[in-house]
Simulated scan of single mutants.
Amino acid sequence: EVQAEGDLDFRGTLGVDRTAPVGFQAIRLRFRLDTDADEATLAKLLQLTERYCVVLQTIATPTKVDATVATA
């Protein structure tokens, strides 16, 4: 089971308050596994997940983004 939750101020996203941030201020992930693995193995699994998860790395690491506009 994977649970994801986060802190988001919709006032910024909806443009209601210009001082409110747009986007998540915090994201929490929880993994619940049905396994007999020991704590060391689970710790290694979490370490590898944090290292190689494309979504997690994209969120956690500054990503270069380019936005352009063009007319027809």
Results as ranks from 00 to 15, higher is better:
63 T>I: 03
16 V>W: 00
4 A>I: 12
24 F>E: 06
66 D>R: 06
62 P>Q: 10
46 L>D: 14
6 G>I: 06
60 A>L: 03
25 Q>S: 01
11 R>I: 09
51 R>T: 02
59 I>T: 05
20 A>S: 15
71 T>S: 04
45 L>W: 11
12 G>T: 00
59 I>G: 04
7 D>L: 05
13 T>Q: 05
46 L>A: 08
72 A>C: 06
32 R>E: 13
46 L>R: 10
42 L>Y: 03
4 A>G: 15
3 Q>M: 13
52 Y>Q: 11
25 Q>N: 04
66 D>G: 13
38 D>M: 00
30 R>Y: 14
49 T>H: 07
16 V>Q: 05
25 Q>T: 05
58 T>A: 00
19 T>Q: 15
19 T>V: 02
71 T>W: 10
54 V>D: 02
39 E>V: 03
42 L>Q: 08
17 D>I: 06
44 K>M: 04
33 L>E: 07
60 A>T: 11
60 A>N: 08
13 T>W: 06
6 G>H: 07
51 R>G: 04
64 K>Q: 02
69 V>W: 00
64 K>T: 02
33 L>S: 11
22 V>P: 00
30 R>K: 13
26 A>I: 01
55 V>P: 08
45 L>T: 03
36 D>S: 04
10 F>C: 09
30 R>D: 12
15 G>H: 09
36 D>M: 11
18 R>L: 13
58 T>R: 01
27 I>L: 00
70 A>K: 14
15 G>Q: 15
45 L>V: 08
40 A>P: 13
63 T>N: 07
50 E>P: 02
9 D>N: 09
34 D>S: 02
6 G>K: 15
24 F>D: 07
1 E>S: 07
68 T>P: 02
6 G>T: 04
52 Y>W: 15
32 R>A: 15
58 T>E: 03
41 T>M: 13
22 V>T: 08
45 L>R: 11
40 A>Q: 13
53 C>Q: 12
28 R>V: 09
58 T>K: 00
14 L>T: 10
5 E>V: 02
27 I>S: 00
59 I>A: 02
72 A>M: 12
31 F>D: 04
70 A>R: 14
49 T>N: 04
20 A>I: 03
50 E>Y: 05
51 R>I: 04
26 A>P: 11
14 L>F: 10
51 R>E: 09
15 G>T: 03
40 A>G: 14
9 D>P: 03
65 V>R: 05
66 D>L: 08
59 I>D: 05
57 Q>R: 02
27 I>W: 00
8 L>I: 14
4 A>K: 13
20 A>R: 05
61 T>F: 01
4 A>P: 12
